[in-house]
């Protein structure tokens, strides 16, 4: 079976089955449109530890039918147990996986990444917990100028 070589940002080289990695639309288009077969494809935005998780996902879903064009409405935590297990990650790592899924154009992985983040937000009892869980920096509130600007804009909207 033909394979595709990838190099991560930390210079680790991977050789993957085409069938597996073609779940990534980016790689699929690069290989088929540009006829890149032998030369390793650099992935400057993806580290090897992130790619390992991505590959785990690709392996779980290698026999899935192609995703529908229009996303189906489903509950936030409506995902298979293997995916739930895979997404048991710290937010830092999960964010890297989401960014990698976005970059590599793997809609299914992006979808479960976003669902997991949404699910975690839903589990928070208040905004303090959201702030802690997602490392959201607490900034100073608005300056007087911003408030004035905001009020001006609002008066415009309200007429």
């Amino acid at each position: 079976m033909a394979s595709v070589k990838l190099t991560t940002s930390d210079d680790k080289e991977y050789t993957l089955d085409r069938e597996l990695i073609f779940q990534s639309n980016l790689i699929k288009n690069m290989v088929t449109d540009l006829d890149v077969f032998d030369a390793p494809i650099p992935l400057p935005n993806v580290t090897s530890s992130t790619l390992d998780i991505v590959i785990k996902y690709l392996k779980i879903h290698k026999d899935d039918p192609p995703p529908p064009d229009k996303p189906i409405e489903k509950a936030v935590d409506d995902m298979i147990d293997e995916d739930k297990e895979l997404m048991k990650l710290e937010f830092n790592i999960m964010a890297d996986v989401i960014l990698a899924a976005n970059y590599l154009d793997i809609p299914g992985l992006l979808d479960i990444g976003c669902r997991t983040v949404a699910w975690h937000i839903k589990q928070c009892k208040d905004y303090h917990e959201i702030r802690e869980k997602f490392n959201i920096p607490k900034e100073l509130w608005r300056s007087e100028e911003e408030i004035a600007e905001m009020k001006k804009e609002l008066n415009g909207i309200l007429g």
């Binding site: 992006l110 976003c114 983040v117 949404a118 937000i121 839903k122 702030r131 997602f134 959201i136």
Partner: peptide, 24 residues
């Protein structure tokens, strides 16, 4: 991506999120 996540939340979740910091 944030927009996709927001769309999975309900009004109350979004309200809480908006209270976390100035950006949200």
């Amino acid at each position: 991506i944030l927009y996709t996540i927001f769309q999975l939340l309900n009004g109350k979740d979004l309200l809480y999120l908006s209270l976390t910091n100035k950006y949200f």
